[in-house]
Design a protein around this nucleic acid. Structure first.
Lengths: 141, 141
DNA sequence: TCTTGCGTTGACGCCGACGTCAACCCGTAC
DNA sequence: GTACGGGTTGACGTCGGCGTCAACGCAAGA
């Protein structure tokens, strides 16, 4: 099959396939017209790449999986190099999730504090004989 | 103070300050020589920006906080627009953490499955009279 | 006087994974 | 003949947040 058909069947674009080829990830044969030609095996390689990319793997990180498939293994993760990438990605995800969770708690705390401060100002403003508004931009619009 | 001193006191670079000014985030006065001049208030604005950036806020998202401080409020998050940014960022973080956690579990599952498959192959290879190795690249190096 | 150290503006580089053009070729259907 | 729907290569654009020159000005100290 040619590049347009492979792209359509894989749910991606011809530009992406040409890019993968330029990176040496998915080389193509050529027919008499110089057009790129692919087979069903290439579709499997491409599906592997797209799946990993959807999971957030860098393009380079998909390389061991692709080479593993091309070496004849039934799955892209049947090779040790792929497992190394899995473990590395897991560690990366754990670190990232940890950082993001810490940031999330900090932001939540800041939001709660800021809302409390705003409500206290609003309550003071309702007290008869309470303090006058200090600023016309006082966050109580 | 001039740009070099402000950058040093804020722990950032002059390039960053010029970039913030180009974005309209931290405009500077000019002295007789055409040099940028800043005061302590600008240092506070800059500190607010850097803190939020360290938490992963986009530069544009810091704008309400900066404008709030410049309007004379005691804190950058004393204004409703800042709270909106807080809430938006919280939702963003929650969504991201959720996605990453789902990916993490998927990857962990794939890793476990692949390791199990590898171990089963290794066990078969140890059985006396077991199957011959199928491939010299068989993931058991 | 000359160097040093600070400042200025403008412009290009970077990172990844492509999108989007331009200019061309080629086979087929009308 | 010609329009159309594929394909080709090459090159520049995108996104954010700066880094890193280049070429210049301007004041103070040796």
């Amino acid at each position: 099959m040619r590049i347009g058909e492979l792209a359509a069947r894989a749910g991606t674009t011809t530009r992406t396939l040409r890019y993968y080829e330029s990176r040496g990830l998915l080389p193509a044969r050529r027919d008499a017209q110089g057009h790129r030609t692919y087979d069903e095996g290439d579709l499997r390689l491409l599906a592997q790449i797209r799946t990993l990319r959807d999971f957030g793997f860098d393009l380079e990180e998909t390389r061991p999986f692709v080479e593993c498939l091309r070496a004849g293994h039934p799955e892209g993760d049947s090779c040790p190099a792929s497992l190394v990438v899995y473990r590395h990605k897991l560690a990366e995800l754990d670190a990232l999730i940890g950082q993001l969770s810490a940031v999330r708690e900090t932001v939540a705390g800041q939001l709660a504090r800021a809302e409390r401060a705003r409500d206290e100002l609003a309550a003071e403003a309702l007290v008869p004989g309470g303090p006058e508004p200090v600023c016309e931009l006082g966050g109580r619009q």
